[in-house]
C-alpha cells in the first residue's frame, strides 16, 4: 500500500505565471510519455515479475514516478495559478480553461486525454522491461524538448532534474533486464 510524504521530492519554484509554458509542461502529467503513464505502467507490471528483485525495482521506481507526477503538477499549478485570462487566451488554453478552470487534468500538450493505451503490461518480463527502458528514453527526450521550449530558468532547472532521473531509471531497468534474462536462462537448464 502507499503512504503520502508531505513534501515535494525536489523543490519547485516558478518565476511567474506562464500559461504558454504550462500548456507544454502538462504533457509530462497526462501525456503519452509522462509520469502518470510511467507510474501506472511499472506499478501494474510488477505483479507478474518473476523475482523479488524485479518486483522491488518496479515497485520503487513506480512509486518514485508518482512523486515526479506531483512535481509536474506543482509546475503547472504554479504557472497557471496567478495567470490572467488574457494570457490564458493568448496561450490558446481557452478550451482547457473552459473545461477545467486552472485545475490539473490529465491531458497531453495538445489536449488529448490520458488513456491506458499509453501503457502496456505484456506479462512477459523481458518484453515489459524493454517497454520500460523505451518509456524512460521517451520521457528523457520529452524533457529535453521541454527544456528547449522553456523561457523560465526556474522551470528549466526542475526539468533538468526530472530528466536526470529518467537516465538513472533506465540504468536500473537495464540492470533488472540483465538479472531477469540470467534468471530465466538458468531456469531452462533441467
Amino acid at each position: 500500500m502507499w503512504i503520502y510524504d508531505k513534501k515535494l521530492q525536489f523543490p519547485v519554484r516558478v518565476s511567474g505565471p506562464n500559461p504558454r509554458l504550462a500548456k507544454s509542461v502538462i504533457t509530462q502529467y497526462g501525456g503519452p510519455d509522462g509520469e502518470l503513464a510511467a507510474s501506472l505502467r511499472y506499478l501494474t507490471q510488477r505483479y507478474t515479475m518473476p523475482t523479488g528483485r524485479s518486483i522491488a525495482t518496479l515497485t520503487d521506481i513506480g512509486t518514485e514516478e508518482l512523486a515526479h507526477m506531483e512535481i509536474v503538477a506543482a509546475l503547472v499549478y504554479g504557472l497557471l495559478v496567478d495567470a490572467p485570462i488574457s494570457e490564458i487566451k493568448a496561450a490558446g488554453l481557452d478550451g482547457y480553461y473552459a473545461d477545467h478552470d486552472k485545475a490539473l487534468y490529465f491531458v497531453s500538450a495538445e489536449g488529448v486525454p490520458w488513456t491506458a493505451a499509453y501503457i502496456q503490461s505484456k506479462g512477459d518480463p523481458i518484453t515489459d522491461l524493454h517497454e520500460n527502458m523505451a518509456a524512460e528514453q521517451k520521457a528523457r527526450s520529452t524533457y529535453e524538448y521541454l527544456i528547449n521550449l522553456s523561457d523560465d530558468p526556474e522551470v528549466t532547472n526542475v526539468l533538468r532534474w526530472l530528466r536526470e532521473r529518467e537516465i538513472v531509471h533506465f540504468q536500473r531497468f537495464g540492470e533488472t533486464l540483465n538479472h531477469v534474462q540470467e534468471y530465466l536462462s538458468a531456469r531452462k537448464v533441467f
Binding site: V14, E70, A73
Partner: peptide, 8 residues
C-alpha cells in the same frame, strides 16, 4: 507542497 512552490 505545491503551495510552497508558488511562494515567491
Amino acid at each position: 507542497p505545491w503551495q510552497i512552490s508558488t511562494r515567491r
